[in-house]
Amino acid sequence: MSEQAHNDLADAGRRDILRGAGVAVLAGMTAAAATLTQSAAAQSASGMTAEQRNSGPLGARLQGVQHFGLTVQNMDRAFEFYTEVLGGTEVFRDGDFQGERIHNTLLTDQEIEARERQVNPRTMGVPDLGGGTQRLDVRFVQFDNVVIELLQYRDASQPAGSGNSFAEPRDHMSPAYPRSMHICFYVRDDVDFNKFIRDLEAESERRGMTQVRANRVITVTTEQERRAAPMEANTNRITQGLSEGWELIYCKGPEGEQLEFVKALGPVKKRFADAFTARQQMVAAQAG
């Protein structure tokens, strides 16, 4: 076998491993999602009219969470991470959005705040979609039970996907800041969590995604110490209290975004299952 053929075969094997890992990470709540879909269908078939629904509680008018949005600096890099590393599937991409309608839809509150402060909106990171100086591109990535939307605001002169972003990224992304959000991925029960984190960091580093760094459960004071920590320091296992059975780690993504990876086992898994069942019963009662 030629060296090129060997490399191609190795790359194909690596892709299969990663695809399998991505499915393992992100398929954990398929059953719950299916149950939720069935619940919504049952509610629809309950005989409730549109008028009754529109006069009911706000919660009864929802179908759940459709997607989480993440504004990125580099669209291609983020898309590669969420599809090739974590195994998501592209739904579609669209872009070059501009004009007053989309500008007002997304940015009215920031324009008002800028006027109240008597400053140029551009100094607050508000792009000019209305005038077309900046544009918005989006890509949707499907996981088993939720969609992630990647958004990039760029100057009109920049190429879609690979062009520079309109605003610089925030340097400090501590999850302790109010208004901070994170994306949490559900790891399958039978996955070796410590190994998953190690493999995630290694694959991301191989792709040049140096921001992808997971925290450790032991105290480290330098990046060198973090990297040298034993693999068993990758997972925080909760063994008492209401969260018993919860396993988690916090990790930055390729854009510096805050990610979390979790497993829910034992008592805490039952708590979530019971809460889900109780919500189904409540929704059914409201629909009846």
Rank of each mutant, 00 (worst) to 15 (best):
I17Q: 11
A40C: 07
V268N: 06
R206P: 04
G241H: 05
D76Q: 11
I148F: 12
T105W: 00
I183S: 14
Q134A: 08
T89M: 03
D155N: 12
T30K: 15
P178C: 12
R53G: 02
T35N: 12
P121F: 08
S44I: 09
D11M: 10
A24F: 05
A60Q: 06
Q73H: 09
I238S: 02
D8A: 14
E247L: 14
G161T: 04
D94I: 00
A160S: 10
G88F: 03
R271D: 03
Y250D: 15
A27Q: 08
A264W: 07
G266K: 03
V217S: 06
G69T: 09
T35H: 12
A176T: 13
F143W: 04
A264K: 07
L242K: 07
M173C: 10
V65G: 04
G59R: 07
R14D: 01
L265M: 10
L136S: 08
N164K: 07
E203K: 15
F193A: 07
M75H: 04
I17S: 10
L58Y: 06
V85E: 03
A27I: 02
V191I: 08
G88M: 03
I249Q: 15
A214D: 09
Q142H: 09
L36N: 13
Q211P: 04
Q281W: 08
K269G: 08
G132M: 03
L9Q: 13
T235F: 03
